[in-house]
Design a binder for these strands. Structure first.
Length: 264
DNA sequence: CTTTAAACCTGCTGGC
DNA sequence: TGCCAGCAGGTTTAAA
């Protein structure tokens, strides 16, 4: 159940587990990828990066594995020798080194491409700047909010659109709009200067805080403080700012949570 | 051009 | 216990 911060956290773990080690076993569940198994065995993973919620695994022979977890995909890391049987129904990808193996379960959006051509992938072509890109500034987000492409869009739908900022998702949009004290029906061109700044700032600060606090990853696996929701999933619970109960509704066909008192 | 609705992918939960 | 409906933190497509 991943948004940008969870995907990037997963990538961090995968990098530590397998980068620059020879692959002793490569296995893909989908028939169309089977031919690549032997071609990749013996190569190394040179880098793993994320673009919004897409994850790219680059190999030393010029190929790249594209994967997108959608709602249900999950990456796991296991020690060498603990790799599961390939008969596990939901196992999709296994990349094993002498030290560790990385496993992708349940995801369906998986493909192998030439690294040189990866930017042509339809999803990567479509998405906007990665919200976790540390060079992205509040001023740039503010400018994007006012650009012809987005100034006329309702905030609720726009924040889910990966063409606006890649990596945002349904919990982040709820938390961003709560922090900016805005309702999802506004369009950016209707916002005053202070609201615009608050929204642009919230887009970056909420996403970065979630990444820094390990997003919503499994508490049993990832120790330390986790990202805390102020509104998401907190129907009926008191708003941290004004104490009034959080309500749930639907915005652009997705669950949405907000404080009806301090969000205007 | 913008918004909505439905479809698809898969896994989990709750009700009967 | 078993099955089915509904839902989920996503994305794409077609239709309004």
């Amino acid at each position: 159940m991943p948004e940008g911060p969870e995907i990037r956290r997963a990538a961090d773990l995968l990098v530590r587990a397998v980068v620059n080690k020879p692959l002793t076993d490569v296995w893909f569940a989908f028939p169309s990828l089977k031919p690549y198994q032997s071609a990749l065995r013996g190569t190394k993973v040179t880098a793993i990066e994320t673009r919004g919620k897409a994850l790219l695994t680059h190999f030393s022979n010029g190929l790249t594995l594209y994967s997108h977890n959608q709602l249900y995909g999950v990456w796991r890391v296991v020690n060498a020798g603990e790799a599961p049987k390939e008969t596990q129904r939901s196992l999709r990808v296994k990349l094993e080194t002498p030290d560790a193996a990385i496993l992708l379960y349940s995801a369906s959006e998986i493909g192998i491409y030439d690294t040189a051509e990866i930017e042509n992938h339809p999803f990567l072509q479509r998405i906007g700047p990665d919200v976790l890109d540390e060079t992205l500034t509040v001023a740039q987000v503010r400018e994007r909010l006012l650009s012809p492409k987005f100034r006329n869009r309702q905030l609720g739908g726009m924040l889910l659109d990966q063409a606006f900022l890649a990596g945002l998702g349904n919990y982040l949009r709820a938390e961003i709009l709560w922090l900016a004290k805005l309702l999802p029906g506004h369009k950016s061109r209707e916002l005053n200067d202070a609201e615009l700044n608050a929204l642009a700032d919230a887009c970056l600060s909420v996403a970065r805080l979630s990444y820094a606090t390990r997003g919503t990853m499994d508490e049993n696996v990832h120790h330390g403080a986790l990202f805390r929701f102020n509104v998401f999933g907190r129907t009926g619970k008191p708003c941290a700012r004004c104490d009034d109960p959080i309500v749930k509704g639907s915005v652009s066909s997705r669950p949405f949570f907000w404080c009806p008192v301090c969000q205007v």
